[in-house]
Design a protein around this nucleic acid. Structure first.
Length: 419
RNA sequence: GCGGGUGUAGCUCAGGUGGUUAGAGCGCCAGAUUGUGGAUCUGGAGGCCGGGGGUUCAAGUCCCCUCACUCGCCCCA
């Protein structure tokens, strides 16, 4: 490694990209707030079993994508590959069952050791929403509605579609899985190598295969629908009715499955065609058994995660450029006064740039580069008179104003506040 | 883990079949204009041509390896 460089699949986020991420998080947080979600921030690493146990020992994430290491005290810890398990662990550790139901909103980095590609990184960022302690479909409806509202707030809902499916309760899922394995075993010779592998570990995933040969076999495979018991059917029907009642459009997709073991009942994904192979921007589902799996009290849950990088790429947010006021001192005395005045104007809420060096010409060029609305020129003449020269950089007009009127005059300029 | 594409200045990119001191535009710095920005003109700085090895009298150019980026598969947000 000749040159120091970032670890593969990690990025420095700055400038317009940073603004884009902030925009996604701000829009999501504001929507979540309206829905009554409380902020939660859990550690970015946990004891390894928190993830290994909940996500499924057979899942790809656990088998080969986790950043796991032994710390100096000899503990096995893992950088979070997702949010749900950590939030559920926090629920258990904090003894929060008496506060149910709970609604949490979170955002931050997550880590998976994967081959990077468009919209997929090793350190990536997610927004996340979870509802704990609600057995009924009302929670499913609310959490999906929140997702749709966030996409709408970002102006990308029209380029996304909601795909919806149910995995049924554990009993239905078990029956269906058995039927599926039986069916695929009969056609094992025609399945792709990947799918033969999946047959052992996660047969539901075969439904999702992109291989043409697999797709032909999948076409005649038994469907989940046929294996749903009455309770599971009623649950799914209620979710669908709720979404229809509030006008959230969706498409049924019987092939939509989840890669992680803890999901039951509702599974959903907001997907887009605009990001190449990484179509899912918000994805989630119900995980009624997860908290128990972690050793907590049996507590139902449902939630989703959204990829901030993917959402930001879709939203293509153009930040409104704040137009500063440029303070331009000439000479050492003026610099002292400029420092004082700049500080005062900033504390009054104005965006003021004070360059660290340079003569008048340099500072004026800098003002122009910053797209400053106005320049405040302060030299010996002005100092002596207790005034400052205010130059409107759009019109080119300038005038001398008493120092104590500067703030008021600046506020009269349109587009100059950038507050 | 598997496949395709791409690595030349801070950025975007030129550099047929190997042939002197590797170029352009934008950006940056300076000057024309020593209390006034944008426009124009002039000049300047900035490159182990991703890295290593090989072929050759001679490699940015050809071969091998490697690293990185990128797009896809797998998986997933």
């Amino acid at each position: 490694m000749a040159k120091i460089q970032p670890v593969r699949g990690t990025h420095d986020i700055l400038g317009a990209t940073a603004a884009g991420h902030r925009h996604v998080v701000a829009a999501a947080a504001e929507c979540a707030r309206r829905y009554g979600f409380a902020d939660i921030d859990t550690p970015i690493f946990e004891f390894t079993p928190v993830f290994a146990r909940t996500m499924g020992e057979g899942s790809d994430v656990v088998r080969k994508e986790m950043y796991t290491f032994t710390d100096r005290g000899g503990d096995e810890v893992t950088l979070r590959p997702e949010f749900t398990a950590g939030i559920c662990r926090a629920f258990i550790s904090g003894g929060l069952q008496q506060d149910l139901p709970l609604k949490f909103f979170a955002h931050g980095p997550a880590f998976r050791y994967e081959r990077p590609q468009k919209g997929r990184l090793r350190q990536f960022h997610q927004i996340d929403a979870e509802i704990l302690g609600v057995e009924g479909p009302q929670a499913d409806i609310e959490v999906i509605a929140l997702g749709a509202d966030i996409l709408d707030a970002l102006g990308v809902l029209d380029r996304c579609r909601l795909e919806l499916n149910t995995l049924g309760d554990p009993e239905s899922r078990r029956d269906y899985r058995a039927a599926l394995v039986e069916y695929f075993l009969d056609h094992k010779g025609q399945l792709s190598a990947d799918s033969v592998d999946r047959l052992e570990r996660n047969p539901l995933r075969i439904l999702d295969s992109k291989d043409d040969g697999d797709r032909r076999i999948v076409a005649d495979a038994p469907t989940m629908e046929a294996y749903l018991n009455d309770a599971s059917q009623a649950f799914f029907a209620a979710v669908r009715e709720g979404l229809e009642a509030i006008g959230v459009g969706y498409r049924l997709n019987q092939r939509l499955v989840r890669g992680l073991d803890y999901y039951t009942h509702t599974a959903f994904e907001f997907v887009t065609d605009a990001l190449g192979a990484q179509g899912a921007v918000i994805a989630g589902g119900r995980y009624d058994g997860l908290i128990e799996m972690l050793g907590g009290p049996a507590t139902p849950g449902i939630g989703w995660a959204g990829g901030i990088e993917r959402l930001a790429m879709l939203a293509d947010h153009q930040p409104a450029a704040a137009r500063p006021v440029a303070m331009v001192p000439v000479g050492p005395e003026a610099q002292r006064e400029a420092l004082r005045l700049t500080h005062q104007l900033r504390r009054a809420g104005l965006v003021v740039d004070l360059g660290f060096r340079g003569n008048l010409g340099r500072r004026m060029k800098r003002a122009d580069r910053l797209n400053a609305r106005a320049a405040l020129i302060l030299g010996e003449d002005e100092l002596a008179k207790g005034t400052i020269t205010l130059r409107d950089l759009d019109s080119g007009e300038q005038s001398e104003v008493p120092v104590d009127q500067v703030e008021a005059r600046l506020r009269q300029l349109d587009g100059s506040r950038g507050e």
